[in-house]
């Protein structure tokens, strides 16, 4: 057996380190600058919490933050419910057109968000739904739904159906089977899918951007507007908060749903 030489092992570790630096340095720089007193990002660093204090009185950003959270929570609930139901249907039944319906889950993921977003703008405007929070909710759920179906289906794939049949033969009604056998097994998958849906909505910029109206927008849209207008460390502060929320969420998903697999 040949083992990788020591030299190669060290080299590969260094390489991984460089990739991680590339991925994290900009984020760390941004976070550090949000604590820097100089609005021109001058160094050396002079620590301050002023920019976070300024956030507390920035109503525009606070309102946008509340909108973002509301949208993300509603998206999570609706997408989890509809998506889990669809995943159950695909798992349980064979029917004509099943394959087509499964393929139809991919356009919302595969078509660039720019096109999805602008087509929503056209259609919603045209039939009178208009723009605003309700339109964004429609859009966010559509983007999150396919992911929920995929994640829950993956969990279902490992489900032993004889368990359901055993429960049936012991006299449980279909609803009881669902309540006491299927759903408890599914729960980790549904929770992971729900957290996924939350992240999709909370981080969504493109679709929200096209469906926002002045005064009613979400954090990413407000951050974008602020960046384009010329930014201050206040933007760093809110951006740091936003990225912290999504990273914590993803760590939670990772605990429930092993991405890397175990081997």
């Amino acid at each position: 057996m040949k083992r990788p030489t020591r030299y190669l092992t060290t080299l590969s570790k260094v390489y991984l380190g460089v990739i991680l630096l590339f991925l994290y340095v900009p984020i760390v720089v941004m976070a550090v600058m949000s604590f820097n007193a100089s609005p021109l990002y001058a160094l050396p660093l002079e620590l301050t919490l002023d920019w976070y204090r300024a956030l507390a009185s920035n109503h525009k950003l606070i309102d946008a933050g509340i909108n973002s959270l509301k949208l993300a929570v509603m998206t999570t609930v609706i997408a989890s419910l509809l998506g889990t139901a669809a995943a159950l249907a695909f798992f349980r039944y064979e029917f004509p057109g099943k394959r087509l319906l499964q393929i139809l889950l991919y356009p919302p993921i595969a078509i660039p968000w720019l096109i999805i977003g602008t087509s929503m703008l056209i259609f919603f405007f045209w039939i009178g739904i208009g723009r605003g929070l309700h339109a964004m909710l429609l859009g966010h759920v559509a983007l999150a739904l396919p992911y929920v179906v995929i994640v829950v289906s993956a969990r279902l794939a490992g489900f032993d159906r004889t368990l359901e049949e055993a429960a049936r033969s012991l006299g449980a009604s279909p609803l009881q089977v669902l309540r006491y056998v299927t759903l408890p097994y599914l729960l980790p998958g549904v929770v992971a899918a729900g957290l996924f849906a939350f992240a999709v909505s909370f981080d969504q910029f493109v679709v929200s951007y096209f469906l926002a109206v002045p005064g009613v927008s979400t954090l990413p849209v407000e951050i974008y507007t602020a960046i384009r207008k010329g930014f201050t460390p206040e933007v760093n502060a809110i951006a740091t908060l936003v990225i912290s929320v999504s990273m914590v969420l993803l760590l939670a998903v990772a605990r429930l749903y092993k991405f890397g697999g175990t081997r």
Binding site: L20, L23, I27, V29, M30, D203, I223, I227, A239, I243
Partner: peptide, 20 residues
């Protein structure tokens, strides 16, 4: 986990961080 953590975090914020 460290490598794919940024993958679902906010795309806009990550682009903004490069301007710094």
């Amino acid at each position: 986990l460290l490598v794919i953590l940024p993958f679902w975090s906010n795309a806009l914020v990550r682009i903004f961080s490069w301007t710094m």
